[in-house]
Design a protein around this nucleic acid. Structure first.
Lengths: 215, 215
DNA sequence: GTCAAATCAATGCGTTCGTATTGAGAAGGA
DNA sequence: TCCTTCTCAATACGAACGCATTGATTTGAC
């Protein structure tokens, strides 16, 4: 139900994606301002300024709507990270790439903070849905793999396996997600979070000692 | 509505707290297995094996019920941390105390992981309720202050102000909460999280250089 | 122009929600 | 014993919910 795609052949298609996205954007606003439990067809329709019938047309059931919103927000987050990667491999030094990636994992603008709040809401929502929880887990696993690979490339260590850098990648990911969470709560500012993350990252990048597996 | 206390004078009082707690425990189970949006009087009553009337008697409105559950789970978390502190100040070396505190911030047993999932659900719930969000923020602020104080005591640095250790305390808190989150998702095991946190903590404890304010 | 497909507003149905009300039993000080 | 208070089960009510249905309108291939 995730790769249904659009009608493609006969569909009017013109404003299809645009109208669909507008509905999803209304869902995001509701989640951010009223909480995920307020996602109802009537409220979404009202917020989007459309009829309930239209919402039903684009999303046959409420579950479809929530699932589409979940997919959209996670894909948007993934795209954010991918855009931080250089288009040509070996184009930029790995240290700069990993700095960019870590920087993307911390919300800076108010729009990014809004996105993180919505993602946190859906992540919590996924806790009681094994299928969705699996997707979240795979996203995090992918991030760890990416970070470990970049750290490996930076150290230019041909002997060590990629996996040798996984513990440090795990620490980096935990630190950044934790910092992002504290930023959302308001305990620290985005700038403080960014400084802490990059300071720690630079220490890891400078560390000449071979990493050892931690558990 | 948080410090109402019990009737105290005339109430039968005997099984009052016990019955009240049983209802809250049912709320926790529902939040953990079905999500916070499934907190309804009928479902809570069914899960607790009592009548809807009894739930209404102990919690006049649904908001009262949710707020009481929120308060109960956060207080339980706070007690968990306090129990890690030595009863007599200056009794244990600060390094051991901070190790114990950090250890408590990472879920190890399945019961602790259950508690963290519930706390995450309520934390997300609080995102759209300023009053509750404030409580969460103050809890985190208190943890940072505690960690900074312990780090200060460990270094025995009379010159530096407590605030000089705040950035490291912030990093520690972000790291542990991030690790806890990754543990809940299943990306890392509790043991891996524990190892990463204590390894980083020990590095901070061993660091002889004066900490400098980071933002 | 024709016509099937797409679009979507309007409305009704059955369910579930939170809450208010009522009344019956149990408890315990007077 | 009496009588107030606590306890709480039962139930009714209006609102809001997800969803199915219907029909009017628009679109785009032919």
């Amino acid at each position: 139900m995730a790769d249904e795609g659009r009608p493609a052949v006969r569909g009017r298609g013109a404003a299809y994606d645009q109208r669909r996205d507008a509905i999803l954007e209304a869902v995001f606003t509701i989640v951010d301002t009223e909480g995920a439990e307020q996602i109802t067809l009537r409220r979404v329709a009202e917020r989007a300024g459309v009829s309930v019938g239209r919402v039903q047309h684009y999303f046959p059931s409420r579950d479809d709507l929530v699932l589409a919103a979940f997919t959209a927000i996670t894909e948007r987050g993934a795209r954010q990270v991918e855009d931080a990667l250089p288009r040509h491999p070996d184009g930029d030094p790995p240290a700069e790439v990993v700095r960019a990636v870590v920087g993307e994992l911390i919300p800076r603008t108010s729009e990014e903070r809004r996105m993180f709040r919505i993602m946190q809401a859906f992540e919590t929502y996924a806790l009681t849905r094994p299928r969705l929880a699996d997707r979240i887990k795979q996203d995090y696993d992918g991030l760890i793999t990416l970070l470990a690979l970049l750290l490996h490339q930076h150290h230019g260590d041909r002997d060590a396996a990629d996996s040798a850098f996984v513990p440090q990648a795990r620490e980096l990911l935990a630190l950044t997600t934790g910092l992002a969470g504290l930023t959302i709560v308001g305990t620290i500012t985005p700038r403080q979070a960014h400084d802490i993350a990059l300071r720690r990252l630079d220490a890891i990048l400078d560390d000449r000692s071979r990493p050892d597996g931690g558990g």
